[in-house]
Amino acid sequence: MEIQFVLNGKKVTADVQPDAVLLDVVRGLGCKSVKCGCETTNCGLCTVWIDGKSSLSCSVLAARVDGHEVTTLEGVEEEAAELGRFLAAEGAEQCGFCSPGFIMNVLAMMRELENPDLDEIKEYLAGNLCRCTGYMSQLRAIQKYMEAKQTEQCMEVPA
């Protein structure tokens, strides 16, 4: 079956089987940041946004995104790079396998929650597994990134 959707701001058409999962379709369209880690919705590596909401692409039939908007890490590269600098500064950089899904969820959380506290951050990111670093350095980086973004927004508000 043929589906059409917006992928990272560009309209695309894909010929998919009825049982095709979104993970395989977006990777086939060149979005290699989306990884398969568990195929059981437990690791968060395959996180994408569907119409701006975090979704695990390994559990979404591709046919469901027909007419919708899908965003992968490739679609938010500037924001991802900025967050990546904060992760690196805290010693929380990862091998690259887990980080795309993790970054997608952090950015989604920032859009969804207003000033989340540490417990809310932990709860929101509970489905993201990392095998390379300790979570404390990641949490410090997220908090510092959020503080920097808030300061940046405050400076943009006209007096």
Rank of each mutant, 00 (worst) to 15 (best):
P116I: 02
F102T: 03
Q94W: 10
R140T: 15
S59G: 12
L113P: 10
G84T: 04
A92T: 03
E156W: 13
V16G: 12
G134Q: 12
M136D: 11
G28W: 09
A89I: 07
G134C: 12
K10G: 12
L139P: 00
D24M: 08
D19K: 04
I50N: 06
K11S: 15
E152S: 14
L61E: 09
E74V: 09
T41K: 11
V48S: 01
E82Y: 02
C46L: 05
S55Y: 11
C38V: 06
G52N: 09
F86H: 04
R140Q: 11
V34C: 05
C130Y: 03
G9K: 08
C95D: 08
N128W: 10
L7I: 06
I121R: 08
L22Q: 03
C154I: 09
V60Y: 10
G9L: 13
L139Q: 06
G84C: 08
I3W: 03
S55M: 09
C95L: 07
E77A: 01
L61H: 07
N115D: 12
R27W: 10
W49A: 04
M109D: 05
F86V: 05
D19M: 10
E69Y: 05
E79Q: 02
I103N: 00
S137I: 03
Q150R: 14
A62E: 01
I121D: 00
I3P: 01
E2Q: 15
R27C: 02
K10M: 15
L139Y: 15
E93L: 13
S33C: 13
D19H: 13
D51Q: 14
M110E: 03
A80Y: 01
G127P: 05
C36D: 07
E79H: 01
A14V: 04
E78S: 04
N42T: 08
V70Y: 00
Q4Y: 13
